[in-house]
Design a protein around this nucleic acid. Structure first.
Lengths: 339, 339
DNA sequence: CTGAAAGCGCTAACAG
DNA sequence: CTGTTAGCGCTTTCAG
């Protein structure tokens, strides 16, 4: 049960360590027979290359760090699945780092990834500004390529894959208006996050065309629980909006639960539209009208861009910035009202 | 922008590398002042310890491998969140490895984890038997502790945290019987997986007490898509069961979608119960009766057991085997019928 | 085609 | 309290 290293194999075969290394890593410079013999005994002995040694020697580790708010929830896990799909076959592993949308935890994770000598980082940053200098340091001083997805940090010059949040919100509001709604509320994603700010801002731009009371706008904290609470307090107002925009799919879940608990009928008592689709949105009664992103696709694209950056590290100035459109899906969670 | 290593710091301060190492790792044997000075300049210079070097030197890496069928889906991501909760604060990182329930991919991931020198592995194995000898080799030859969760591999002697699948199925069937159902079908999780086999087997034990036609039992492949297809083909039978057990929450989603697409009314046309709860189960119309696991809890327990194994590596014989009970939740997806 | 040698950055005896 | 030394296992010149 002794540890099997190159040296052990080399001694067993009476050759040198470097030859064994070359044979096993598929490098040229070993006769075919010798190579096969080496491969055979490596397998027989149960040799597993030591990634820490390789990593130390080469300064690279074949691992990609992924920073994201949370593992649970449909949206990010779909994204990660997409990333994994493109990266796994190329031999890369993912190191997933949940930040809980806490900039300090995010910073700790970033430092950890630096220590790990990751070859690249994919990040949906916790906060729009908090770790700006750390991110810049990673890119410039450490030379680790970063691609942001879903969210970004202002002032950090790098590639990103975002969704057109403004357009998404506009599609939602315009639709509601077309159905006669003029009094609209919103439960938006966590304040401080890129998506939270962007979606809220886009919504508030309608303040001259529709009625938006301050009490109709709540921070749903991006979570089921937050959406649940926000809806409860919003629906308690005597003067209610006729329609509500919910800023992501987790919060929609919470809102629906709250509506059920309080016997609020959708769309009769209040109309509802959601940013993000989800498998269950179509099954609910009523099915939820929404604008849909394609998280799996986001993952694929983001990973592909990183790969490209890692390959062509020369073209320093090049930036790939993608902004994806959402898809509007009309279902039955909005009723027509008189202006 | 040169790489900052212990050596750089040492030279800058005119001390030796080992002193710097001791100071930075909090080991005794450095005067308080010197230590502070070292810590200060390390920070000023932007020093990040090289995990590959530390890992190589110590043979340990502070990382835990997690093998699981998939990242997406509520169940496993909740489990992982639980694991992360206990492991992160102790300085461990998780390396998540999706297997897609494919034993070959699983084997590749395991070998990768060995190479990575992980300190422990948490696994929901892809197949009940496929990688038995590899798992045993990891435990015995490599000395890497493993804890199985949700599923296990037969014949691999190690700790595990499972759910009482048999009891869960029994509660479901008994409940259906109490509502008068005697013709029951099942859409079970992927054949070959521990949970798939266990839940199916438990169900089939009722074959003398209720009617179970062969066409009423389908493999839903553990996925939404699989559940969707299975339900479609099942409901097409002229002779249908009066009630259906769906073997996990992803498949339930698919079944509900199919029911909607085909205008099959639940519970009027067919009654439904589900293994696993989910946030949305309560919101659906009708809300779904089910037996619930607590995935977050599973994660916490599994991680805790692994931690314990890593600490007390001496007690080789000790095994912690947990079997968790499910919680029955009655909602409205089953109607009473006449026996 | 093959071998010898020099480290990658860090830790852990062992001396002093 | 601090420094010196010897590697961890691997890759990569540089010779032959």
């Amino acid at each position: 049960m002794n540890k099997i290293t190159l040296k052990v194999i080399a001694e067993k075969l009476g050759v040198s360590v470097s030859t064994v290394s070359r044979a096993l890593t598929g490098k040229p410079g070993v006769s075919k027979e010798l190579r096969n013999k080496i491969i055979a005994t490596a397998k027989k002995l149960g040799y597993y290359p030591d990634a820490t040694a390789t990593g130390l020697r080469r300064g690279k580790t074949m691992t990609i760090g992924v920073l994201l708010p949370e593992l649970s929830g449909d949206f990010f896990s779909q994204i990660v699945t997409g990333m994994e799909k493109v990266l796994f076959h190329l031999g890369y592993r993912l190191m997933l780092c949940p930040t809980d949308d806490d900039p300090e935890k995010e910073a700790a994770q970033i430092k950890m990834l630096i220590s790990q000598k990751v070859e690249g980082i994919l990040s949906a940053p916790a906060d729009m500004k908090a770790n700006r200098s750390l991110y810049s340091q990673v890119i410039n001083d450490m030379g680790i390529p970063i691609v942001f997805f879903d969210r970004l940090v202002e002032g950090v010059d790098t590639d990103y894959v975002l969704t057109d949040n403004e357009d998404g919100i506009r599609q939602l509001v315009d639709y509601l208006m077309s159905k006669g709604h003029r009094r609209i509320g919103m439960i938006h994603p966590l304040k401080g996050t890129f998506t939270g700010e962007a979606r809220l801002r886009a919504f508030l731009e309608y303040k001259d065309r529709i009625e938006i009371k301050e009490e109709w706008v709540k921070d749903g904290k991006s979570s089921e629980m937050g959406g649940y609470e926000a809806f409860k307090s919003l629906i308690r107002e005597k003067d209610k909006p006729t329609a509500l925009i919910v800023g992501n799919n987790l919060m929609t879940l919470g809102v629906l639960k709250a509506a059920r608990d309080l016997s609020v009928k959708i769309p009769d008592d209040i109309s509802l539209v959601s940013f993000d689709d989800a498998y269950w949105n179509e099954i609910f009664d009523p099915p939820i009208t929404c604008v849909a992103q394609d998280p799996h696709q986001i993952g694929l694209i983001t990973a592909t861009i990183l790969l490209d950056k890692m390959k062509n590290k020369r073209e320093k100035g090049k930036r790939t910035n993608v902004v994806l459109k959402v898809r509007f899906i009309e279902r039955s969670s909005v009723k027509k009202v008189k202006g």
